[in-house]
């Protein structure tokens, strides 16, 4: 009850205002050295992801190779932050990235819908962690959230948090199903209160996935959380971030909404797959002075 009072007592979010702010910041013009820096930063923030029914051991190994060495011709390209796979692929990914320092993120808790029993969700989580996941990307029960059962959502996050053990917990809000920014703000605070290390926008299976204004609202939440508690928590937009231009817009938002402290893989990630190759092409273009093409980066 007090949780409901707290969440409903958060300041509202004006849709037009937040969208305008996001659009305004998106006009930042990032050029030259600052662009190259942004590209390298962005590469290091990627959770390189494959979450397909068709995923195979071969596909995941290939992804991991890419994660370790994104541009084979350019060893100075930083490695990505993590690979993100389904629980049954965690062991494969862990083996393929061993010794690289790359984190293994696994989606869990009946991803992407979250529609299963608490027992199954916790078992899913434990299986992922036991298989070697260092990060767990859980989904909240949107049905419970939308029907006002905040306590239930909270308890589930706490339980998953516990099942994670040492693994970091990212809480996927699936903002495309929460629809309003007020809900995004409430869900963000709910997840932070319940102990999520990161709040993440989307599964990538629902449209719209990550958007700039939603990410603004979530960045405001972790910023305000820090102001109030002194603790840093992270944000992960996922889904739909496909090119360098988009990624840089997100970095600008991180830099100016939460602050430069958040420009680290401990506090910000991109959940993406095709983004990495565009970053690599743009990186080459910056360094070589001409545009690159898709045949010059690896398709994995």
């Amino acid at each position: 009850m007090s949780l409901r009072r707290f969440l409903h007592g958060l300041p509202g979010v004006d849709q037009v205002g937040v969208e305008q702010r996001a659009a305004g910041l998106a006009t930042r013009s990032i050029k030259k050295a600052s662009k190259l820096q942004a590209i390298d930063t962005a590469i290091g923030l990627v959770d390189l992801t494959t979450l397909e029914g068709a995923d195979t051991v071969g596909k995941v190994r290939s992804l991991c190779a890419k994660a370790r060495r994104p541009d084979p011709e350019r060893p100075d390209v930083p490695r990505v932050a993590a690979v993100c796979v389904y629980p049954d692929m965690v062991a494969t990914a862990a083996a393929a990235t061993a010794g690289s320092g790359i984190d293994i993120a696994s989606v869990a808790t009946a991803f992407p819908s979250g529609r299963s029993t608490r027992e199954i969700k916790l078992a899913d989580t434990r299986f992922a962690v036991e298989s070697g996941a260092t990060e767990v990307d859980m989904v909240i029960d949107r049905g419970a959230f939308l029907s006002g059962q905040y306590g239930r959502v909270f308890d589930e996050i706490v339980a998953v948090r516990e099942a994670c053990g040492q693994a970091h917990l990212k809480v996927i809000l699936e903002t495309g199903e929460l629809v309003t920014y007020d809900n995004v703000r409430r869900a963000s605070w709910l997840a932070l209160l319940a102990g999520g290390d990161f709040i993440k926008t989307s599964t990538g299976k629902v449209s719209p996935a990550a958007t700039l204004p939603v990410t603004h609202v979530m960045l405001q939440a972790v910023r305000d959380w820090h102001t109030q508690t002194g603790e840093h928590r992270g944000v992960k937009p996922a889904g739909g971030i496909r090119n360098t231009k988009d990624a840089i817009r997100y970095l600008v938002a991180v830099n100016e909404v939460a602050g430069p402290d958040w420009l680290t893989s401990k506090l910000f990630r991109f959940g993406a797959s095709s983004l990495l190759n565009d970053l690599l092409m743009q990186r080459r273009a910056q360094l070589e002075g001409h545009y690159s093409g898709p045949d010059y980066v690896t398709v994995d």
Binding site: P11, G12, G17, Q20
Partner: peptide, 9 residues
Amino acid sequence: DAPLDQAVE
């Protein structure tokens, strides 16, 4: 009861 972040903007 203002939307504070937008009010700041």
